[in-house]
């Protein structure tokens, strides 16, 4: 990975703006970029969504296939999440096996969906111990302008929400994926001691630390992930949780639309 170059001017500019409560793109600290979701974007996927969060553009496909359950959960469907940071999306992404960044991205998105029990996996059992439906969530970053965590997470949830289980493959009728919860992740970045929500690329590059908090429709916390080399104090963490609950409500409405 080549070191990202952000001019000292830009760094100072962002930090100075933040100190006076402003951001480069005119947003409030707790204001995410506009979210646009197009569901059923890919015909050959069982579920899919193209998500634009500002200029960050992510395509998520869900493929559902018959497979074997894990031995310790013989009557539950399986969820598997991967992410590809393709070189098209950023001059800093390289082709090759998944980087630690891509792995972390996939695992954080996966955690939010899995831990909130978004999909009722018991309804994905075909024959206990033998056959269950396996959901593959594939995250494809197309254009990277910061905060892939949230964009990918909205994409994954949107794709799941329109996915159909292809039961006709086994002589039954297709049915919608049994969705029961709506986890929304909201990422805050710490810049010069201020917390800004949904950082764009410039903000993300100079951020000291990052905290992704996934909450469900009741405002309960389902997953968290701190990232980058800086730190948070406990009050900042609590603040990020409240922001996630509040901002998440608005975004959830957009993801829930058809």
């Amino acid at each position: 990975m080549t070191a990202e170059v952000i001019s000292e001017l830009m760094r100072e500019h962002i930090a100075r703006l933040a100190a006076s409560g402003k951001r480069t793109d005119g947003r409030r600290f707790d204001e995410p970029r506009p979210l646009v979701v197009q569901k059923n974007y890919i015909k050959n996927a069982e579920g899919s969504a193209r998500v634009q969060l500002g200029n960050t553009d992510v395509l998520v496909g869900v493929k559902i296939d018959v497979g074997e359950p894990y031995p310790d959960t013989p009557n539950q469907g399986v969820l598997s999440t991967s992410a590809e940071l393709i070189p098209m999306a950023s001059p800093n992404f390289e082709a090759g096996p998944p980087s630690p960044t891509a792995i972390e991205l996939a695992r954080v998105v996966d955690r939010g969906i899995r831990e909130s029990k978004t999909v009722n996996v018991e309804k994905l059992c075909i024959t206990p111990k033998e056959k269950v439906w396996i959901m593959f969530i594939d995250i494809h970053a197309l254009d990277y302008d910061g905060n892939l965590f949230d964009a990918a997470s909205y994409g994954a949830l949107s794709a799941l929400s329109c996915a159909r289980v292809p039961a006709s493959k086994i002589g039954k009728e297709d049915y919608p994926l049994p969705l029961e919860h709506w986890p929304i992740s909201v990422t805050s970045a710490k810049i010069g001691g201020n917390m800004v929500v949904d950082p764009n690329l410039d903000e993300e590059r100079i951020a000291e630390a990052r905290l992704t908090v996934t909450t469900d429709e009741n405002g309960d916390i389902r997953a968290m992930q701190k990232g980058l080399k800086g730190s948070f104090n406990l009050d900042e963490v609590r603040g990020a949780i409240r922001t996630s609950q509040k901002v998440g409500r608005g975004l959830r409405g957009i993801v829930q639309r058809d």
Binding site: R111, R114, E115, S116, L211, G219, D220, I221, R222, A223, M224, Q225, K226, S231, F232, N233, L234, V237, R238, I241, R242, Q245
Partner: peptide, 12 residues
């Protein structure tokens, strides 16, 4: 706080 992760179900 230099590391923080969470999975499962907790209220604030």
């Amino acid at each position: 706080i230099v590391l923080l992760q969470m999975d499962g179900h907790l209220t604030a």
